[in-house]
Design a binder for these strands. Structure first.
Lengths: 341, 341
DNA sequence: TTGTAAGCGTTATCAT
DNA sequence: ATGATAACGCTTACAA
């Protein structure tokens, strides 16, 4: 069964396509007599008319679609962000095309092109760890497509950004450990590139220094594989061998922390009495293991919400040909203290 | 800077739009002289021409976009499925619009309409628990849009389906518990509606019967809130009060099992010596808690992969006006035995 | 109040 | 080998 178009309605109603279009338009001040309007609308309903979005898209050069590129959806944090992005976008009449870079810069670039081809109205990106060249982002901007970076952002790019104050959160977490009497605090950090990893590391260092504890580089272990959990486990083993007197571990992610906890438990080392553990991210898992992991709660949903909100505003401004200022939002994270410290 | 169109190239090259279109087309046997072709392609590159997909979409009535509706992305299983769907779709030139029903039937219906309006080429749905009326699915089919249901499927709908053999997996899990000597096995099940919950329950029952154990309805606890974890915890408490001699618990999801484990641990009940626990779904968490949870691994990625594969095939057939047969794939699940039993 | 015609950017058909 | 024209379905000046 062929889908009905304005033409079909026009034929049936005995009006021109134009009049039918007007009669069906939301636009109130489009002179059509009440009678015609009703007749047309009635026929439209009878024939199950739905406007062909493709045609409207072409006409308006808008798709009411936004694209999202994130490292992966199989990750609590990103899943929560995406969840809120989809919800909020839909509530505002936008659909979301989701894409995953899997931390590959090349994939990210390709996906930007796909979205540009698709003529999405705006793009949201959480950069891959690997991304060091930003021409693809500049390309988006040069086409005047609104772009908002979130979580993994790049300061040098001239677009709105939403991120979490990782450094501050790490600072607070380590300060908390210190306030509990811990003095020799190891840090299991992530690779150098992602800004978040660097920020958390710096927060750690600053907390030590501010509290008069000497920063000891040998207490730092860098995870650059993708197996956080295993790294947490093996780093702890190594750490205990190298620093038997360590009394706390602060990790860059919960997963690493959980690996650490499992090693400690397997070797009957008491948490937090012998060694305290502090994670970062508040994975679902973290509240369910025992001892439950103290960690930093990142405002994931909030991040998604703010990112779409800004993007949609920019899309609107853009459409109305108005200039808009880019915004850089830094959301606060908060400590969640459980039993592991 | 205005985006370049065929018109711009035509003007610059001194050819008609038609010729330019032909010169740029993939279609080889479209008589254009080698010289013109090269000239046109050169100019196209110079002007950074990219075809306007919107126009092509309108022309072809295709969008190379598929829609996915699932209960939520914030769930290991669905995130993994979605992950693979996105990947596989993209590899085949399709983009994915993701939508979440949050287990609301009304939302699901609305989203189907959104996707239909957007003229997606095909739709993938994992039904919400609440969905009992299927007119929205029939609407999709009546428009000849390929539809594939996965995981939460509805047998009565005439479309392809991909699901997991939940009943068989539950049967094997419970049989395993029995083989380990457990005789009084409780079951924490989910609500009645989702087919998966029913299937797992039936597998449980069948295993008991087949092994000569009397099915005792008082050992069944039904979780119909959305707080699986808490239910697992409180059900265990209740269970121990009502059946102090219970020796194993089989749960409909890992989350419930983890709730149970935490209660048992808090009350120093040994796992699996006093009570064994068997979950279902293999959440990431399950391997990280202690004792690590024995569970059923569902082939999530495989499910996503198979679902898109079938959908894309049907889209192709549909486009070529060929008839196709619907397929019903049932994927096997496998037991993962860890320390909790 | 209603209708004609042009246009969005592309491609297919049919001349030339 | 190249090009004019129509068509996809809709919107919107501009006429009538």
């Amino acid at each position: 069964m062929k889908t009905t178009t304005l033409k079909d309605i026009a034929k049936e109603a005995g009006f021109s396509i134009t009049t039918v279009s007007k009669a069906l338009s939301q636009n109130e001040h489009l002179d059509v007599s009440k009678k015609t309007k009703e007749k047309v609308q009635h026929i439209a309903r009878k024939l199950h008319y739905t406007p062909n979005q493709l045609a409207i898209n072409l006409k308006n050069s808008r798709t009411y679609t936004i694209g999202v590129i994130l490292p992966t959806v199989v990750h609590c944090f990103f899943a929560r962000v995406l969840n809120r992005i989809i919800e909020k976008a839909e509530k505002n009449g936008y659909l979301v095309i989701a894409l995953q870079s899997n931390e590959k810069s090349s994939a990210e670039k390709k996906m930007v092109n796909l979205l540009l081809d698709k003529k999405v109205d705006g793009i949201l990106i959480s950069l891959s760890n690997e991304t060091k060249d930003f021409t693809h982002l500049k390309k988006i901007l040069s086409k005047k497509i609104p772009l908002v970076l979130f979580d993994k952002i790049e300061p040098s790019i001239d677009c709105s950004k939403v991120s979490v104050n990782d450094k501050q959160a790490a600072y607070e977490a380590v300060s908390f450990l210190i306030s509990k009497g811990h003095k020799k605090i190891a840090h299991f950090r992530g690779d150098l590139n992602p800004k978040v990893s660097k920020d958390r590391f710096e927060g750690y260092k600053k907390a030590l220094i501010d509290h008069g504890i000497l920063y000891d580089p040998s207490l730092i272990y860098v995870s650059n594989t993708n197996s956080d959990y295993e790294d947490g486990y093996s780093f702890t083993q190594k750490l205990l061998a190298e620093h038997p007197d360590v009394d706390a571990i602060f990790t860059v992610t919960d997963l690493i922390a959980i690996g650490a906890i499992n090693f400690l438990q397997k070797h009957s080392i008491k948490i937090p009495e012998d060694i305290a553990v502090f994670g970062f991210s508040n994975w679902t898992t973290s509240s369910m293991i025992c001892p439950a992991l103290s960690t930093v709660e990142q405002p994931s949903a909030m991040m998604g919400e703010v990112a779409v909100k800004i993007l949609l505003e920019e899309i609107r401004m853009q459409k109305e040909q108005k200039a808009y200022n880019i915004r850089e939002i830094i959301l606060p994270a908060k400590l969640i203290i459980r039993q592991s410290c």
